[in-house]
């Protein structure tokens, strides 16, 4: 059938995409501003760190681009300096990053129906992208998939740019940034409070905070995450029956 419209089908698709993209970007950017500060700082610190170990700037740039998991990249730098042991590197990474499993389980539903973007969304599921994409209520007129895409992509950009600046200009940065990494802590505290005000019961929030703190005291800073994850999983499983009963009763 001939179309009398001035615009071809392709044009319409293109325009529809454009009208989705800009509002999604505008909605996403403000949420990433604290991460801009945090990641530029941490990225620069990482670049300087790599520089101090004798690696050229290309290392922090490529590693921040491909690994995109902050704490693991610092550990990876050390792995490059000890004896070659790829299996050890793999298992250490699985241990340090095991918390991502929880992010994935939490995002199974939210990432549904995001099309090809889903692969990138999963690739970029770092602590900060997770905490924003998981908790923000995206405005109704904004495309959810593109919103989450831009949050992830902006975070990724900040991190790589930071690492590049640190790697290239590392030795010239000279102002007192001591304590700036607290922005990440502050971000998670804010998101925790936002969640707290939204939820009907606080069992899960309190379990996460309490059990992690207890595990930190028992197992120490470098070993507490996996026991904490098991403890959280155990308690949430025990709470399932009583919590679901409460839900049924309130309905």
């Amino acid at each position: 059938m001939l179309s009398l419209n001035k615009f071809s089908h392709q044009d319409v698709i293109y325009m529809k995409k454009r009208t989705q993209l800009i509002p999604a970007f505008r909605a996403a950017f403000p949420y990433t501003v604290p991460i801009l500060a945090g990641f530029l700082f941490l990225g620069i610190a990482y670049g300087i760190f790599m520089n101090s170990l004798g690696f050229s700037a290309i290392y922090p740039i490529l590693m921040s681009l491909t690994i995109f998991a902050g704490s693991m990249e610092f550990i990876a730098a050390n792995l490059l300096l000890v004896a070659f042991n790829p299996i050890n590197a793999l298992f250490l990474t699985l241990m340090v990053n095991a918390r991502h499993l929880f992010y994935g389980i939490s995002m199974l539903d939210k990432y549904r129906g995001t099309g090809k973007k889903k692969l990138y969304l999963i690739f970029g599921l770092c602590d900060e992208s997770f905490s924003i994409n998981c908790t923000v209520d995206v405005p109704k007129d904004v495309d959810k998939g593109w919103f989450m895409f831009f949050v992830t992509m902006l975070n990724h950009c900040y991190w790589v740019i930071g690492a590049a600046i640190g790697g290239i200009f590392g030795s010239f940065v000279k102002f007192n940034t001591e304590g700036l990494d607290f922005v990440m802590t502050a971000l998670f505290v804010v998101i925790f409070i936002e969640q707290w005000m939204k939820e009907k019961n606080h069992h899960s929030a309190l379990a996460g905070l309490g059990l992690s703190a207890v595990c930190l005291i028992i197992f120490g800073g470098s070993n507490f995450i996996i026991p904490a994850m098991f403890a959280i999983l155990g308690l949430l499983s025990l709470l399932r029956k009583p919590l679901e009963k409460v839900e049924v009763r309130t309905i």
Partner: peptide
Amino acid sequence: TPKYVQYLGKMLPSAVIGLLIIYCLKD
């Protein structure tokens, strides 16, 4: 998705963000 995993997906976010706060303060 199994009901149990759906339940975890709903409950985990708050707990994980609590975990992240403690993770930031681990040192």
